[in-house]
Simulated scan of single mutants.
Amino acid sequence: MTRLVKDVMTAGVTTVWTEASLAEVAQMMRDQDVGDVVVACGDTVVGLITDRDITVRAVADGVDPLSLSAGSVCTPDPVVIGPHEPAERAAALMRRHAVRRLPVVEDGRPVGLVSLGDLMRERDPRAAPAGAGRAEPGR
C-alpha cells in the first residue's frame, strides 16, 4: 500500500510572519525544539527558514538578529506538497530541488512538514528517531 505524506509528516507546523525578527525566530526554535520554521503572510506559505539560514545568512556576517526579518533571510517560495500525495513524490521533489524538507500545505494553509528523516524512517523503521545523537544544550 502506498504511504501518503500525511502518514509520515510531522503534523502541525511552527509558523512566523515575514516581519518577525531573527531573534524572535531563534527563540521560537529554541522554545519549541525545532530547526525550521515556515514563514507566512496571512495563511500563505512564502518561505522556509532554518537555524542554518540564521547562522549563515546573518550571524556569520555579524548582522544584528534584531535588525533582520524572517522574510529577508528565509528561502523564498519553498517547494510544497499536499498531505494526500504519495510519500514517494515528496522524496522525488526533495531530490529534484535539492532540499531536505517540504512544508505540507492543504487548502493553501500549512499543516505540517515532511523531512528527509521522516521519509528515511518510513523506508526503514529501524532508522534512528528524530533528534537521536543530538547533544543536550551546553554540551
Rank of each mutant, 00 (worst) to 15 (best):
D51T: 10
E24I: 13
E88C: 07
D61W: 14
A127G: 03
M120H: 11
V39W: 02
T10R: 03
G71L: 07
L22Q: 03
G82S: 11
A60G: 07
L4Y: 10
A132C: 07
T18S: 12
A135C: 09
D64P: 05
M1S: 15
M94D: 09
G42L: 08
D124S: 01
V39T: 09
R95P: 10
T14K: 13
D31G: 14
G138P: 01
S21G: 00
R57I: 06
A58I: 10
M9W: 11
D7E: 15
G62H: 00
V5E: 02
I54W: 09
T10A: 13
I49P: 02
A20K: 08
M9G: 04
S69F: 13
M120D: 07
G47A: 01
E24R: 13
G138Y: 07
L116K: 11
T75W: 03
H97V: 08
G71I: 01
L102A: 07
P78I: 03
D61T: 04
D107F: 10
V5G: 11
M9I: 08
D107M: 11
P129D: 05
A60L: 08
A128W: 11
I81M: 10
R3Q: 15
G108H: 05
G108C: 07
D124A: 02
E122S: 10
G82H: 09
D31H: 04
P65T: 01
D107W: 04
G112W: 00
R123K: 11
V16F: 06
A91F: 12
